[in-house]
Design a protein around this nucleic acid. Structure first.
Length: 225
DNA sequence: CCCTGATTCGC
DNA sequence: GCGAATCAGG
């Protein structure tokens, strides 16, 4: 990474805006390690760290989180040697070709963009992640940018007088292998035998899977007649 | 497991 | 100086 004046300025700016190191990294197309490393070197103010957040009790000398052993780190040579060996000996059968990091990063960025376009959830997410001091700022920024979104109510189950049967999730079929949350998009008519909820793995932070989230969250301008 | 930021240390 | 590897907390 060539730390040009501009790159450094950008880093400083984003850093001061309270964006996460990973987010800054994405915007600069570098890793969060590079970001935090450079920030550290630049003497930028530390962010509230998850780990060191040990209460600085008054008088109590908080041990700087006694980090453990320096951890033996592989040398580049060792890494290369290992790589050579594995590539010759036991090439992974079908793990698929690993995407280059750039591709991954790009994909990640694309994903993010889509998300921002489609929903405002990301805004909330970002805001939540941001330190208090910058929340307002972030909101202000974000509000004008992404399209407004309205969560449409999913098909309203016709309410019956008798209690509904216990909802069945398709996901419960393989509950043994996947215990996570389940998409709660209703399928079929409540009260009828076939009624169940989707049960697929929901998008992070949403009650619906990708397929149904796409239906549930519709851009306002797409609803206009 | 995902995320986060901080630190270490081979390069 | 750089940043991947690693750590550790949520």
């Amino acid at each position: 990474m060539e730390w040009t004046d501009e790159a450094i300025a950008r880093l400083r700016d984003l850093w001061s805006q309270g964006l996460s190191t990973a987010e800054i990294g994405r915007q600069l197309s570098i890793t969060k390690n590079a970001v935090v490393g450079k920030a550290h070197r630049l003497g930028l103010p530390s962010r509230p760290s998850p780990i060191r957040s040990r209460k600085a009790k008054e008088g109590e000398t908080v041990e700087p989180t006694p980090r453990r052993k320096p951890a033996p780190r592989k040398t580049a040579k060792e890494v290369k040697a290992a790589a050579d060996q594995t590539s010759v000996v036991s090439k992974k059968p079908s793990s698929g070709a690993e995407k280059p990091k750039e591709a991954l990063a790009a994909a990640s960025v694309e994903e993010k963009k889509k998300e921002v376009e489609a929903t405002s959830h990301i805004v909330k997410k970002v805001v939540e992640a941001a330190p208090q001091t910058v929340k307002a700022k972030v909101v202000e920024k974000a509000v004008e940018a992404p399209a407004k979104v309205v969560p449409l109510t999913p098909p309203k189950p016709a309410q019956t007088s008798r209690p509904l049967p216990p909802p069945r999730f398709l996901g419960s079929i393989d509950r043994s292998t996947r215990r996570g949350p389940a998409c709660c998009w209703p399928i079929g008519d409540p009260g009828t035998p076939g009624f169940h909820f989707c049960g697929a793995t929901p998008l992070s932070g949403k009650p619906y899977c990708a397929e149904h989230a796409a239906i549930a969250y519709v851009k306002i301008r797409d609803r206009r007649d």
